[in-house]
């Protein structure tokens, strides 16, 4: 039996990130927004502030913990909504006639041709920036991709003889999709989900870094990076901690996606662990 190393490492990293985000909802070492000027720019390793403090003396660990929550809520939120909408649209497109399919596919093409940054800026300008707006922006970027993936995967399943067989023993179109098509594309969608979860975290960090994502009193790793940028040279670890956090979580999700790709393939499923 083969050990799926990527899946295990990826799952551990992801689990840690999620646990930290959960803990942050009920316990934090310090108030991450409370300035403490006498303690400003403490180096990592101080007894009270293990990873030090920022330019206003705010605790880094506390900020990273809240940042993890933001990343996960926004990344998972955007990826989940897109997954659900995209799977529904993709399945409808694949299983319906030409007109519905063409309409859905062309709308997806148009949405994909709008640069994500434009969508994000327009949404931030109209709705105000914040985590929820970022989730909407992610949904707008990701839903058309999920739709395409779900549609093409569903089309290839619909070609299979077991679909014709089901039609012959009297299963209607929607029951065929529910019983046979959906279970067969679920694996592809789950893999896609983990990859977009990671992409969502990166996008959120990027938007917050540019000031159109999460702003104080919200905290995000991207926001921490942008605040640290003003301090680079004075205290470069300030940029390192959120940067490292992003890398670790994104890496974890991508490893998990790669691992799941193997595990969810029924032909390879003997080698889960």
């Amino acid at each position: 039996m083969r050990l799926n190393v990527s899946l295990i490492i990826g799952a551990i990293l992801t689990f840690c990130a999620i646990s930290i985000a959960v803990v942050s909802t009920f316990w934090l070492p310090y108030n991450p927004n409370l300035p403490n000027i006498p303690n400003r720019l403490l180096a990592a390793g101080s007894a009270e502030h293990w990873l030090g403090t920022d330019v206003l003396g705010r605790d880094i660990i506390s900020q990273l913990m809240v940042g993890a929550r933001t990343s996960i809520v926004v990344g998972a939120g955007g990826a989940t909504i897109s997954l659900v909408l995209g799977a529904i649209m993709g399945l409808i497109a694949a299983a319906s006639g030409k007109i519905v399919d063409e309409t859905i596919s062309r709308v997806a093409d148009i949405m994909l041709s709008i640069p994500g940054m434009v969508t994000a800026l327009v949404l931030a300008a109209t709705l105000g920036s914040g985590a929820l707006t970022t989730i909407f922006a992610l949904t707008a970027f990701f839903t058309p991709s999920f739709t395409r993936v779900a549609r093409s995967a569903a089309l290839s399943v619909l070609q299979e003889d077991f679909i014709t067989a089901a039609q012959l023993y009297g299963r209607g179109r929607m029951p065929r999709v529910a019983r046979h098509v959906f279970p067969n594309i679920a694996g592809v969608l789950i893999v896609q989900f983990t990859l977009y979860f990671a992409a969502g975290i990166l996008t959120e960090a990027g938007l917050s870094y540019l000031g159109v994502g999460v702003t104080r009193p919200g905290i995000s790793w991207g926001l921490m990076l942008s605040e640290a940028q003003n301090q680079v040279g004075v205290s470069s670890p300030l940029a390192m901690w959120p940067g490292l956090s992003i890398v670790i979580v994104v890496l974890g999700l991508n490893l998990m996606g790669d691992g799941l790709r193997d595990v969810l393939d029924p032909k390879l499923s003997k080698s889960i662990l």
Partner: peptide, 13 residues
Amino acid sequence: VVMQNPRSSLDPR
């Protein structure tokens, strides 16, 4: 009805 390709005629899931 029995079809040509047995691999394709049963749902792998």
